[in-house]
Design a protein around this nucleic acid. Structure first.
Lengths: 186, 186
DNA sequence: GTCTATAATACGATAGAC
DNA sequence: GTCTATCGTATTATAGAC
């Protein structure tokens, strides 16, 4: 795949994470990506909505892979989820609380404004939930429990990221890690 | 307090809820509020950041009062939180998944971009958490537990709203209600 | 208190050259 | 594939009349 195209998607992800959809301009994307200015509409002829939905799509693939790898480090599912969230907290802190999830803001901004982006967000959340569900199923949780719990894990991590970023403090994510471990250990 | 000023704040809340900070224009606020165009910079001389932070401040007062009232309907704290979340789900659905929380998108968009708005969001989340913590303390939870759990309740409700809006389905919030009840009943 | 007009800038998107 | 120039329309904010 083209280098410029890839750079654009990566820069878009980082910017969406930091400032959302409407807060991110195409000029900014070109500048941050160090891609040729002429490449934007060459690789993404359908414009900003296309760039955004593809960036979200790609990021969910990368993130779900990271979840799988992270969860593989403990055989116990509850412990694995707990430790993974602590890693998320580290990353949020390392980014200076500028990053966390490229989905949250975009999903909320566009839920009723862009069919295309909403669909991308919906599938992205599904992909993330899958990664957790697989681990829970492998850990012996019955299917309906794994379904519910994996959704709850995704939801509370999202909430933890919001509170940690807003308070510029990783304690909220640490609390989410602890409480989820308790719930998953039942 | 002035009528126009109040209308502007209310309209701002609704728009922030639907499309976030950068997605909401001052022209749109004036139009939706049915307030005189000349009133915007008369009542809010410091512009968009002032309007936004005041809107968030006011909405957190209103919401925390609603939380207190909602939680008062059950004497059991776990049951009260559960039932309250089902009411949140109803409201999200009734709005056509356009509403939910005026904080989420704004908090994520502006976490590292506007000191003023970040501060307003931080205090707003604190206010919401307080409302839950009081109920937990009254329900006999020891102080550190009430602290952790009330934060976790806020985080997972936020996450549930995000997933429900994105999927245009109240099931995520219902799951959050159920799982939180389990955790709070331990 | 409210109005219009407008400044200054940014936006997304397109056209046409190379 | 990439460039520049530009269209049309938004944006936030201000100035000055009433």
């Amino acid at each position: 795949m083209s280098n410029a195209r890839e750079q654009i998607l990566q820069a878009t992800c980082a910017l969406l994470e930091k400032q959302g959809y409407h807060g991110t301009g195409l000029n900014e994307i070109v500048r941050e990506s160090h891609a040729p200015k002429g490449s934007l509409y060459y690789y993404f002829p359908e414009g900003k909505e296309q760039i955004t939905s593809e960036a979200i799509q790609q990021s969910s693939q990368v993130t779900s892979e990271r979840i799988r790898l992270g969860l593989a480090e403990s055989s116990d599912a509850a412990q694995a989820v707990h430790d993974f969230i602590l890693k998320v907290a580290e990353n949020v802190e390392l980014s200076g609380f500028a990053a966390g999830s490229p989905l949250t803001a975009v999903a909320m901004e566009t839920a009723t404004k862009s069919e295309r982006i909403n669909l991308a967000c919906r599938e992205a959340y599904g992909t993330l939930q899958n990664a957790f569900r697989e681990k829970l199923l492998a850990g012996g949780y019955p299917q309906p429990k794994a379904e519910e719990l994996s959704l709850f894990v995704v939801a509370s991590i999202e909430g933890g990221i919001i509170l940690s970023r807003t308070n510029r403090n990783v304690e909220p994510l640490r609390i989410v890690a602890r409480q989820l471990k308790i719930l998953l250990s039942l």
